[in-house]
Computed example of a mutant assay.
Amino acid sequence: MLENSDLLSAFKHLTSQLESSTGIKIMCEAIGIPYPLASEVENNLLRIGQEGLTNALKYAQATEIRVELIYQSTQCILRIKDDGQGFAIDRDSSHNGFGLLGMAERAELIGARIQIHSTPDKEQKLQCP
């Protein structure tokens, strides 16, 4: 998806496809002025986002998902929020499933970190600054 477009366009295309195939409202927006990132960073952020969206669609029972690319002067943050059921987070939560482990490994490859905010029966949020 990134071969012929930028990261924001790739996310908009992905979320549009997922929304039409699932019927779940998925919004995608940039906050700040988008700028190009290294191709390795963009590729890994897209893959992390795909896994985060897949998890929200498969497990959260969300009715609405929001993807935000937050462009700041020193970093770009990928944030995925949904209104689905949360899950208990323990200190080893990145090792509880292959999806979360894969996201953590991809983040490490590009010098980023994954932050997961979730409470059972509450909105959850994944952030990768």
Rank of each mutant, 00 (worst) to 15 (best):
S16V: 05
G86W: 06
S20G: 05
G86F: 04
N44K: 15
E64K: 15
L101H: 15
G23N: 04
L2A: 02
I48R: 03
S118L: 01
E19I: 00
K125S: 13
L7K: 02
D82C: 09
D6G: 15
G52C: 13
I70M: 03
E40G: 09
N55C: 03
I48A: 07
D6W: 07
K12P: 00
A56W: 00
L37Q: 06
E3Y: 10
Q17P: 00
R113F: 12
G97M: 08
Q61W: 05
G99Q: 08
A104K: 15
N43M: 10
I116P: 04
A30S: 12
F87E: 03
L100C: 07
D83K: 08
L69V: 10
L14K: 10
Q75T: 11
G23A: 02
N43L: 11
D92E: 15
Y71R: 08
N96T: 11
P36S: 13
N44C: 10
G23T: 10
F98Q: 11
S118I: 05
N4D: 12
L57W: 03
M1K: 14
R66G: 03
F98H: 13
L100V: 08
I89S: 05
S21K: 14
S94E: 13
T15L: 06
S118Q: 03
D82I: 04
Q72F: 03
L37G: 02
I31P: 02
L69I: 01
E64W: 06
R47F: 04
L100A: 09
A30F: 04
F11E: 06
I80F: 02
T119C: 05
G52N: 10
F11D: 03
N4T: 12
I70C: 05
R113T: 10
G52W: 00
A62E: 05
S73W: 01
D90R: 09
N44Q: 08
H117W: 00
R66W: 03
N55F: 14
A62V: 07
E51H: 09
Q127R: 08
A62S: 15
V41E: 14
D90I: 08
L78M: 02
I114N: 02
S21R: 14
H95C: 10
D6A: 01
